[in-house]
């Protein structure tokens, strides 16, 4: 991908929303200090959350928030892919299916019947899936919500034609660089940090919580060992499994790890 802010035409950027809470788009809007620079470097051509003005495609960069949960979205994401040269999946809904992927672990019809007075009007899929499950994606930015610094770094890297600087180190690295005390060791709180991609700045451990894994699996994680390590710390039944089945529940690594965690817990119970 080559974008050049020097060319007379600024690269056109489009921001799309699928099934999501809009939090990641808000992270973009939240970059007050940098928005002027961003606007001088790129042409925000499509961003309904920010402006009703829409410039026609095709676009150089498409940033997609949200997961695919309806038949309509399945079609629309293909159109988006077709009109964007470079496609970025933004946030954990877009990269793993998000919290709404919890439906993948049960029957969606049961939910619909419980929640809606007229379930016949609801057109939804059995599953919530990531953008990459539906169309090819060039880059994934994890996070629930994403870290605005990461988004900036990705845009900067695209404009400068370089690899974005977010190494696949686990959250533990960020804890230690910030001198945060390990909540698992010092307080016995289950924490996914050892296997989760850094980038949040160890937000939860800094506030005395275990990592919920919203930045998704790190490439080097040892999930088997994580499960064996954290399940014994569970303070209530299936705490570790629930951590794994939250924001990033539908990522393959987390799915397998959650199953393993449940299995350990059930074996223990049987004993």
């Amino acid at each position: 991908m080559t974008l050049s802010p020097k060319s007379s035409l600024k690269p056109k950027v489009a921001v799309y929303k699928f099934s999501s809470c809009d939090g990641c788009q808000l992270s973009i809007l939240n970059m007050e200090d940098e928005l002027l620079d961003i606007a001088s470097a790129v042409d925000i051509s499509y961003f309904l959350e920010a402006t009703r003005t829409v410039k026609p495609g095709p676009y150089d960069v498409g940033i997609v928030e949200g997961s695919i949960t309806t038949p309509h979205e399945v079609d629309r994401i293909k159109e988006v892919r077709a009109e964007c040269k470079y496609l970025i999946a933004l946030g954990t809904c877009a990269t793993a299916g998000g919290i709404q992927a919890l439906r993948n672990f049960s029957r969606v019809d049961d939910y619909i019947k419980t929640v809606y007075a007229h379930p016949e009007f609801i057109h939804t899929l059995e599953t919530s899936t990531s953008i990459a499950n539906n169309v090819p994606v060039d880059l994934e930015i994890w996070g629930c919500p994403v870290n605005k610094g990461t988004v900036l770094e990705v845009l900067a890297a695209l404009l400068q034609n370089r690899r974005p600087n977010f190494p696949p180190s686990p959250v533990c690295v960020e804890c230690k660089r910030r001198s945060i005390i390990c909540v698992a060791v010092a307080q016995g709180i289950p924490c996914l940090g050892p296997v989760v991609h850094g980038g949040c700045g160890a937000l939860c451990p800094a506030n005395g919580r275990g990592c919920y894994g919203c930045f998704g699996p790190s490439s080097a994680g040892n999930f088997n060992s994580l499960v064996n390590t954290m399940v014994p710390l569970d303070r209530y039944p299936n705490e570790t499994a629930n951590l794994l089945r939250s924001f990033s529940s539908n990522s393959p690594a987390f799915r397998a790890a959650a199953d393993a965690a449940l299995k350990i817990a059930s074996t223990k119970e049987a004993k």
């Binding site: 900067a156 404009l159 600087n165 180190s169 790190s218």
Partner: peptide
Amino acid sequence: QADILGKSTRRERVWDSCFNPN
């Protein structure tokens, strides 16, 4: 750590580890 326009950058030294994938 470069800014978005590529006009300024800060070079930082950080703790690393031989366990890091990179």
